[in-house]
Design a protein around this nucleic acid. Structure first.
Lengths: 191, 191
DNA sequence: GGATTAAAGCAATAAAAATTGCAATAGCGA
DNA sequence: TCGCTATTGCAATTTTTATTGCTTTAATCC
């Protein structure tokens, strides 16, 4: 019989949070268009609704926190020896990660709840900050190799943005070579 | 003294709808991050809350309908004699239209509530169908003039998507030449 | 091992959202 | 102009959401 995992640091508080976040993810996967109620989340997580109100106050705040944390967790940054390979691998991971009901629903929620930064002073504080950090690491590596590295904003505009548009407004990314073409284009030096 | 506009066809039903949609827009402009309650909408519109529940059933359905109808209303399709001029004018209109609190909030709501088409069979049925129809008209005109016209999907990916990404995740479009650079790039034939 | 504290649970209560049955009204069409 | 119908309004009621005061519990620290 499998021994239960030892409690993670933070004790019950952390266990409750994990149970709640798991519950939110499952409920969103079950009904991607809807926002679950606090009651439903509490039942699914096996906790008391009062705990949810005390800790998060509002279901939209909770759901937003789940969406950001569970969706934008670190993706591996490939190290293929070329920026083309690295970027293709990374973008394929992003696209694949979003190409299911749960994660596309989480992206939708993250988009809906994003508090747009007023100053864009710290790009890493944006909801897509993790993606940005991954790209920065990738671009720094490319420059180290002496490769042409496009501007970070260009990759956001011409790789990440089209992926998001397809997922949010066209349901899925069905074109197998879509990511490859995006990468080819952004790595073409501007005329 | 200005005479009031004659009532539009559809009578009270249409007047109630207009009042309700106006109310939703104003409440969203006042608090771009929030979804107004049915009670608040009813008060602002001067109608009975029961009418809202009877007609729309759920505040999210109502707000989604307002977001789609008020945001994605027809934008003028410029006719400058060249695709470059037409596309630049069109994209500038899209960007300018979204560069205020109300419309960016409406875009966020539209994104959150978009029911992604499963088959993408009819692009025009998508929430961004109006933008697509505008682009189709523009591209048809360019082909008539014998100009190189990129694929419609490329314009969505490399012009509309970056605009949406900036608005949704970076707060606003502050780069004055942003749209110009997007158009230049998409009109460069792929290598 | 025990004290302390923060987090969670419980049950009652308050507030808000949503529904229902019936009445009133707008406005279309004959 | 009048009849008819769909829509809207009203008030009461139900349901759901959210809050509150107090108790219990987990777990940290000494």
């Amino acid at each position: 019989m499998k021994k239960p995992a030892p409690p993670r640091p933070g004790g019950r508080s952390e266990r409750v949070k994990t149970a709640v976040f798991d519950a939110v993810e499952h409920l969103i996967a079950d009904d991607p268009g809807g926002i679950p109620s606090m009651a439903a989340i509490a039942v699914r997580a096996g906790v008391n609704p009062t705990s949810l109100y005390r800790r998060w106050g509002d279901v939209n705040i909770l759901v937003a926190e789940v969406a950001t944390e569970r969706l934008v967790r670190d993706l591996p940054v490939p190290d293929t020896g070329s920026l083309h390979g690295d970027l293709t691998g990374w973008a394929s991971n992003v696209a694949r990660n979003l190409n299911n009901r749960k994660n596309s629903a989480l992206l939708r929620i993250m988009t809906a709840t994003a508090r747009a930064s007023r100053t864009a002073r710290d790009l890493n504080s944006l909801p897509i900050g993790r993606r940005i950090a991954e790209l920065e690491a990738m671009l720094a590596r490319a420059r180290k190799r002496g490769e042409y590295a496009p501007d970070l904003m260009d990759i956001l505009d011409f790789v990440l943005a089209p992926i998001y548009l397809r997922v949010l407004f066209m349901g899925a990314i069905r074109d197998a070579d879509f990511v490859g073409r995006l990468v080819d284009r952004v790595l073409s030096p501007p005329l």
